[in-house]
Design a protein around this nucleic acid. Structure first.
Length: 512
RNA sequence: UCCCCGAUAGCUCAAUGGUAGAGCAACCGGCUGUUAACCGGUUUGUUGUAGGUUCGAGUCCUACUCGGGGAGCCA
């Protein structure tokens, strides 16, 4: 689906993607990647031609007959008295392991092969052949097994059996070697790719907004301070810290949103998106919050709130479809080991049309629901998690986009409706996770925007550049924010956001 | 930050206020084209930390630390 039809006044500029980079000369060794191939056959230990391939490609029946070299980590070893051992090899290229058959004739069979255990790193050379046993199409008959690094079985924390996520969090440096975190890493990679693919195909421009900022998009005191001042010797002026002595000559923070800067580029280049790290210093101790997370924020000139919703829905569906199509094995793993309903739920979302429901109607539905809520529902107060869950999981059973919230509940930059009481905000609620997207049509009228800033105790002078966008050539525009980690929770069925980010940062914890 | 729950072997968990155990892992042996292999045996503890109650505390009380679930803030 294209959004180019939506009231664009200028054609999209040529995109960077039209400049195709020249093909790089082959590297000496391709360690990872989907080519699964280095710069050609090389001489193996027995003088045969060895091709470096991944476990993923060696597991395919097409690989049968090839002389190959594989590099990865041992998951487990089983011995046969018949004079050989089975080694389960994984290199992160896919969910499944490759079975290596190592004969006793190998020169290092007794000294090394029979001592291999979980965690050891090896290079294996041999021939891919059809596996006579169930469980895999192929296996590799090893001609050599080279051990790079041992993993002492007494002290290596990862065992063959399952571990709790809580335990794995304490060894975040080793958990990428587990099935679950391998699957998460590959899914996260795919989602990141889908995000760029979707927006690039729609003619969006990828904009890098600053990590360090002096503005506070949400208007609250939950930012991380950035300073080079010595905390033990702060320069003071009338009892206050004198920030003119600081690096930027003013207080600065880690960004909580790239939205305001994205608006700058949207109001000049049309459709843009940001995709980068975001920092919130809130003392949130939940399974859905991180102090450091990745956020995607598209911002579109000439989009109204309905266009915004259409984009959000089509964007989410693209990510789901790609995950199902391109991470099939990992998604199957989530279905079997993490959440028995994840595939049907995602398929249901793909097939559904997101329900668009004004806040006012949602409140009426909740009031008439007869449901016993812990917190009462009343027009003018924010909906609680239990209310949102009721709507998306129980009442409708599909994603719900709530919009037109009371102005008192939402930030200054959201466009005020004609009724004067509500603003053009939207929240996308999905089953299982709750709010996954928050967005709005932006206030493009200078006088109303200034009034809203004062209403919320903000000094318009500090946002002079933001106001200039309304002062000169203002346009209606919209955008939203999608949390990458919440998307991963939604896609995988995982229960804790700390398990879908490589290195979680939460209050009291920044290990690794 | 608030409410609730928890912390015992490398991991997952038992143990009416009265001698701290099991399964898995590890190690040894057996068996096997095996695949969460199987069978037999062996090893493993300052019961989160600091106090308190008690003749006696893994168990009861207090504080703290860490973890989990829920709430708020939100993505």
């Amino acid at each position: 689906m294209s959004f180019d039809h939506v009231r664009r006044f200028t054609p999209a500029p040529p995109r960077a993607s039209s400049r195709v980079a020249p093909v790089a000369p082959p590297l000496a060794i391709a360690i990872r990647g989907h080519t699964y191939r280095d710069n050609g056959p090389k001489s193996g230990s027995e003088g045969t031609l060895m091709e470096l391939i991944t476990v993923a490609s060696a597991r395919q029946a097409e690989a049968i007959g090839k002389q190959v070299r594989l590099q990865g980590w041992v998951r487990t070893r089983r011995d046969s008295k018949g004079g050989f051992s089975f080694i389960e090899l994984n290199d992160g290229s896919c969910q499944g392991n490759l079975q290596i058959v190592a004969e006793a004739a190998l020169p290092n069979y007794e000294t090394e092969v029979k001592k291999l255990g979980a965690g050891c790193s090896v290079t294996v050379e041999g021939e891919v052949r059809q596996s006579p046993a169930k469980g895999q199409a192929t296996e590799v008959a090893a001609k050599s097994v080279t051990v790079h690094g041992w993993a002492d079985a007494e002290s290596y924390p990862l065992q063959k059996k399952g571990h709790s996520y809580e335990f794995l969090r304490t060894i975040a440096h080793l958990r990428p070697r587990t099935n679950t975190f391998g699957a998460i890493a590959r899914l996260r990679n795919q989602v990141s790719r889908s995000i760029h693919d979707f927006f690039q195909e729609q003619g969006f421009l990828y904009v890098h907004t600053p990590i360090i900022t002096a503005s506070d998009c949400e208007g609250a005191g939950h930012l991380f301070k950035v300073s080079t001042l010595n905390p033990a010797q702060l320069p003071l002026q009338n009892g206050q810290v004198d920030f003119t002595k600081d690096f930027f000559h003013r207080p600065t923070f880690l960004t909580v949103s790239g939205q305001l800067e994205a608006e700058i580029f949207a109001c000049g280049l049309g459709k843009v998106y940001t995709f980068g790290p975001t920092f919130r210093a809130e003392n949130s101790n939940t399974s859905r919050h991180l102090a450091e997370f990745w956020m995607i924020e598209p911002e579109m000139a000439y989009f109204d709130l309905q266009d915004n919703m259409t984009l959000a829905e089509s964007f989410l569906k693209r990510i789901i479809r790609d995950a199902l199509d391109k991470c099939g094995e990992d998604m199957k793993f989530f279905q079997e080991r993490v959440d028995k309903e994840i595939l049907t739920r995602l398929q249901g979302v793909l097939n559904s049309q997101f329900l668009r429901l004004p806040y006012t109607e949602a409140v009426e539905i909740l009031e008439k629901s007869g449901e016993k809520f812990e917190f009462p529902v009343r027009w003018g107060i924010d909906l609680q998690s239990e209310h949102e869950r009721y709507l998306t999981e129980k009442k409708f059973g599909c994603p719900v986009i709530l919009f037109d919230y009371p102005r008192t509940l939402k930030p200054f930059y959201m466009r005020v409706n004609d009724d004067g009481k509500t603003v053009r905000a939207m929240d996308v609620l999905v089953p299982g996770v709750g709010e996954i997207i928050g967005g709005s049509q932006r206030e493009e009228r200078l006088d109303i925007l200034e009034q809203r800033m004062k209403e919320q105790g903000l000094d318009p002078a500090g946002y002079w550049w933001y106001l200039d966008l309304r002062r000169y050539g203002t346009v209606p525009h919209s955008g939203f924010g999608l949390g990458l980690e919440r998307t991963l929770l939604f896609l995988s069925g995982m229960g804790n956001i700390r398990d879908v980010v490589p290195f979680p940062r939460v209050p009291g914890s920044a290990e690794f």
